[in-house]
Simulated assay, not measured.
Amino acid sequence: MDPLPLAAAQDAPGLRIGEMAKISGFSVKTIRFYCDQGLLHTARSEGRYRIFSSDSLAELEIIRALRSMDVPIGELARILEVRRAGVCNCSVLKDSIATKLLSIDSRIQELQMMKSELARLLSSWQDCGGAKAEDAAKK
């Protein structure tokens, strides 16, 4: 079954969790987790199914982007609440992204130094002259 087109989903009165999963690319289990953590708000149908608004799709995209930057769940919840209140938090997000970029650059430098050190160690490696592990295993 093809996923619902995003435009049609936005016009729908409410989406069930399976539809949200198909449209967003998140698993049903992950969406449930985000609901349980208070990141996504839902209503319940008469049959007790979770019903999501089209705003939840936008929030899932924000969650995806921020989780890729390792933003903790608690911070995500705060960002989403501020957004729902209609307060612009662009500067907070921009600062978070800039901080993550600096962290990645720092980690890249650390890994490059480690790589250089390992390459130096390997190039200067000398066999110890003792019996090779394969030879010792045969005895």
Results as ranks from 00 to 15, higher is better:
residue 125 W to F: 14
residue 129 G to S: 07
residue 48 R to F: 00
residue 96 S to D: 11
residue 43 A to E: 13
residue 128 C to A: 09
residue 105 D to S: 14
residue 113 M to F: 11
residue 126 Q to C: 09
residue 4 L to K: 13
residue 13 P to N: 01
residue 7 A to D: 08
residue 63 I to E: 01
residue 82 V to I: 14
residue 10 Q to G: 10
residue 26 F to N: 08
residue 33 F to E: 05
residue 59 E to T: 04
residue 99 T to K: 01
residue 129 G to K: 00
residue 110 E to I: 14
residue 98 A to W: 05
residue 23 I to V: 04
residue 3 P to I: 06
residue 16 R to Q: 12
residue 62 I to M: 13
residue 127 D to K: 00
residue 120 R to V: 06
residue 24 S to A: 06
residue 22 K to H: 04
residue 101 L to E: 09
residue 65 A to Y: 03
residue 88 C to T: 14
residue 60 L to F: 11
residue 102 L to C: 11
residue 41 H to A: 13
residue 126 Q to V: 14
residue 76 L to G: 07
residue 5 P to L: 11
residue 116 S to N: 02
residue 79 I to Y: 07
residue 58 A to T: 05
residue 118 L to K: 00
residue 84 R to D: 10
residue 122 L to T: 14
residue 52 F to P: 07
residue 55 D to P: 09
residue 114 M to H: 11
residue 28 V to K: 11
residue 25 G to H: 04
residue 106 S to I: 13
residue 62 I to E: 05
residue 21 A to H: 01
residue 34 Y to M: 07
residue 91 S to E: 15
residue 53 S to W: 02
residue 105 D to E: 15
residue 27 S to A: 03
residue 91 S to D: 15
residue 20 M to Y: 01
residue 93 L to E: 02
residue 76 L to R: 05
residue 137 A to W: 07
residue 50 R to I: 00
residue 104 I to S: 06
residue 10 Q to W: 09
residue 75 E to I: 14
residue 24 S to H: 03
residue 34 Y to C: 05
residue 16 R to T: 04
residue 102 L to K: 10
residue 30 T to V: 03
residue 96 S to M: 15
residue 34 Y to V: 02
residue 74 G to M: 10
residue 21 A to R: 05
residue 90 C to K: 06
residue 90 C to I: 15
residue 37 Q to D: 12
residue 33 F to R: 06
residue 17 I to Y: 01
residue 117 E to W: 01
residue 93 L to M: 10
residue 53 S to D: 08
residue 17 I to N: 02
residue 59 E to D: 07
residue 16 R to C: 01
residue 65 A to V: 07
residue 40 L to Y: 08
residue 45 S to P: 07
residue 24 S to R: 04
residue 49 Y to E: 01
residue 98 A to P: 10
residue 65 A to P: 03
residue 64 R to Y: 08
residue 93 L to A: 08
residue 48 R to W: 04
residue 118 L to S: 10
residue 26 F to K: 05
residue 108 I to W: 02
residue 109 Q to K: 11
residue 33 F to Y: 13
residue 21 A to V: 02
residue 105 D to C: 05
residue 87 V to D: 11
residue 96 S to T: 15
residue 102 L to I: 13
residue 68 S to Q: 12
residue 45 S to F: 02
residue 56 S to R: 04
residue 55 D to G: 11
residue 56 S to T: 08
residue 44 R to V: 05
residue 70 D to I: 12
residue 48 R to L: 03
residue 5 P to T: 12
residue 47 G to C: 00
residue 103 S to C: 14
residue 28 V to T: 12
residue 25 G to R: 01
residue 50 R to G: 02
residue 93 L to H: 06
residue 47 G to V: 00
